[in-house]
């Protein structure tokens, strides 16, 4: 029986993420969090393989204790085992340090397939899959859409490549990063009373990793500054034809530098229609 590890990330479900002004890292606590939708698709593909071939599906996430929420969700989806890698030294990890930690856990389990999302919706670097694969010296498939089939240690994957669809055959172990797509989420009825106990909590020490290999210290890239994007800040010029209410709203929505020479069309009279047609058709 083959073993699949699905790497999950909890991401903020809001654009109001606060920044810790002292160390310029994100304050994620207190913000509503969800499973990164790309990772959900990776989990879905893993569960399909479980159904078809009886493979085991292990999920893991690296994050604060609250991240167990997405692991509990994974159990409801049908995952067999879940690891929560949580350690204060992990804070501030860049993609290198994150991949280091994930590889530390992945190596313990001897997985045949390592699935992850192509990118996360909050930072969207798309680096993790490639980094994990290179660290483990195994092949990787990016922009995967689905698993087509499996024969012994060879897996066939359909992937997107610019305007092409490609089918690749890769020898396991392999890292596959999945694109996002719509699917119907099916949840299983499981014993909720023990769900939290089923999560295996691990720390760096359990993975034989040193604090300096991860977190800010273990990261090659460092955030040196967080700024308001100057190009999008500025005085808001208000259209004097607007009503007082509308003007107030315009000012309070502020933000982006106003285009000074714009033309506003607020009705669809014959004249306007002619103008729009000459613009866009």
């Amino acid at each position: 029986m083959k073993k699949i590890l699905v790497c999950l990330k909890q991401v903020p479900n809001t654009r109001d993420v606060k920044i810790n002004p002292e160390n310029h890292t994100l304050v994620r606590e207190g913000v509503e969090s969800v499973l990164n939708p790309f990772d959900d698709c990776a989990l879905e593909e893993a569960l399909k393989l479980k159904k078809k071939y009886g493979f085991s599906v292990t999920v893991m996430t690296m994050g604060p204790p609250q991240a167990e929420k997405i692991l509990e969700y994974s159990f409801r989806r049908g995952a067999d085992e879940a690891f929560l890698l949580t350690d204060r030294h992990l804070a501030g990890s860049d993609t290198w340090a994150t991949a280091t930690a994930v590889v530390g856990l992945a190596k313990k389990g001897g997985y045949d397939l390592l699935f992850c999302g192509q990118e996360s919706i909050d930072s969207g670097t798309g680096h993790i899959g490639a980094s994990i694969a290179e660290m483990m010296n195994i092949p990787q498939v990016n922009y995967a859409e689905k698993v087509l089939g499996l024969h012994e240690n060879r897996i066939r994957i359909q992937a997107k490549f610019d305007k092409f669809d490609a089918q690749l055959e890769v020898v396991t172990p392999v890292v596959v990063s999945f694109l996002k797509k719509g699917f119907e989420v099916k949840l299983k009825a499981i014993d909720e009373s023990v769900i939290s106990e089923r999560i295996k909590r691990v720390t760096l020490a359990d993975l034989n990793l040193l604090p300096e290999q991860v977190g800010l210290e273990g990261s090659y890239t460092q955030v040196v500054n967080i700024d308001i994007d100057e190009r999008f800040v500025g005085y808001v010029t208000v259209d004097s034809n607007l009503s007082a209410n509308e003007r107030i709203l315009y000012i309070t929505t502020g933000g982006i530098t106003e285009n000074e020479n714009k033309k506003i069309i607020r009705d669809l009279s014959q004249e306007s229609i002619e103008e729009i047609a000459s613009l866009i058709m």
Binding site: D94, T95, W96, A99, G124, T125, G126, H127, I128, A130, S131, A133, E134, M135, Q140, N142, Y143, K160, F161, D162, S219, Y220, T221
Partner: peptide, 23 residues
Amino acid sequence: GTIFGRTLAPQVATRVQTGLTAD
């Protein structure tokens, strides 16, 4: 950051053990 570049860059950065910033 083409599809090729977006896959190649993190692979290379990991191999040569250095930092990489996307996009």
